[in-house]
Simulated assay, not measured.
Amino acid sequence: MENEDDSRATTYTTLASGPDFRHELEVRRSRFITVLRRSPDEETARSLVADLRREFHDARHHCSAFVIGPDRMIQRSSDDGEPSGTAGIPILEALLKRESTPGVTDLSDVSVVVVRYFGGILLGAGGLVRAYSESVSAAMDLAPLVERRRLRLCAINVLHEEAGRLENELRSSGYVMAGTGYGPRHTTLQVALAADEEAISEARSRLASLTAGSAELEPLGTQWVDVPR
């Protein structure tokens, strides 16, 4: 389990867990294949470039960028042979300027590679900047996103026969469920709460009401948790 870190952020937006997301755009006969990967670290981000170089080995360019960390402190980009400043930076800026909600730019833990197949028509510097930027923006319009929050995990031990009902009632009450474990006699439900005492107190009261006081809330520590948007 992750503990509290030095990040000042308590929430940001990222790709939903799952396979790489792909989108293709054609601009004046050139193909721009955009691939997005959720990347919590540089190794994962760089592996996307390596993977796509092998898959699209006959493409001229594999331009890339990534932004990592709750505070978006790690940022890199590469033009990969395109004229300087026409690919990597536009890709990175498309990530950094992406609004998860109006006025909020907090996308992170995302790597992008745009594979370009030249179509025989020169686009010029301005055309390349627009094409790379638009290819990433179009992919982001369709990609599945989640909100990632730093929350306090709490455990609830209940009898197996009561677990399903309690989990459904907690979900119906708006609580974020973060996992389930099974023991010989009890099921352990994990619920993710805002990391403050008021939220803990409210959850304890709600749990007491739902279980007639038979279950208790056990704080486990803080962790980053995906919350559907």
Rank of each mutant, 00 (worst) to 15 (best):
A94F: 05
A87L: 08
S100G: 10
D106P: 00
D71P: 03
R60Q: 12
L52F: 04
P102V: 07
C63Y: 04
S39D: 01
L36A: 07
V113I: 09
G69Y: 12
D51K: 15
A87S: 02
G85C: 04
V110L: 11
D80E: 08
D58V: 00
L96Y: 12
V35C: 10
R37V: 01
V49W: 14
Q75E: 10
R46Q: 10
S39F: 09
G69R: 11
E99H: 04
T105I: 03
A87F: 02
A50V: 03
R76A: 07
V67W: 09
P102N: 06
V104A: 04
E82R: 08
L95R: 04
M73R: 12
S78C: 10
R116W: 09
R38H: 15
G85P: 05
R37D: 04
R53F: 07
S78Y: 13
R72E: 13
P70K: 11
S39L: 09
I68C: 05
S39T: 05
I74D: 02
R98A: 12
D79R: 08
P90V: 03
R98T: 07
P70R: 09
A45L: 13
V114T: 01
G81Y: 15
F66K: 15
T86W: 03
G69E: 05
D106C: 02
T34D: 02
T101Y: 14
A87D: 06
G88R: 07
T105W: 07
L95W: 10
A50F: 06
I89Q: 13
E93N: 05
T101F: 14
F66E: 12
L92R: 15
S47Q: 14
D41S: 11
E93P: 00
E55H: 00
R46P: 00
A87P: 05
L107A: 00
V114Y: 05
A65V: 03
A45N: 07
A59I: 06
V49H: 07
A45M: 14
V113Y: 01
T101N: 06
E55P: 00
R53I: 00
L107F: 03
P102D: 08
E99A: 08
E42A: 08
E93F: 01
T101K: 15
S111K: 13
P83W: 06
C63I: 06
H57Y: 15
S77E: 02
S78M: 14
S100M: 13
G88F: 11
R60N: 10
G88E: 05
Q75V: 03
P102R: 14
G103N: 14
F66Y: 15
S77C: 13
G85N: 07
E55N: 01
R60G: 04
L107P: 00
D71A: 09
T101D: 10
A65H: 10
S39G: 00
D58H: 09
R46N: 04
D71F: 05
P70G: 05
S108Q: 03
D109L: 13
D106R: 11
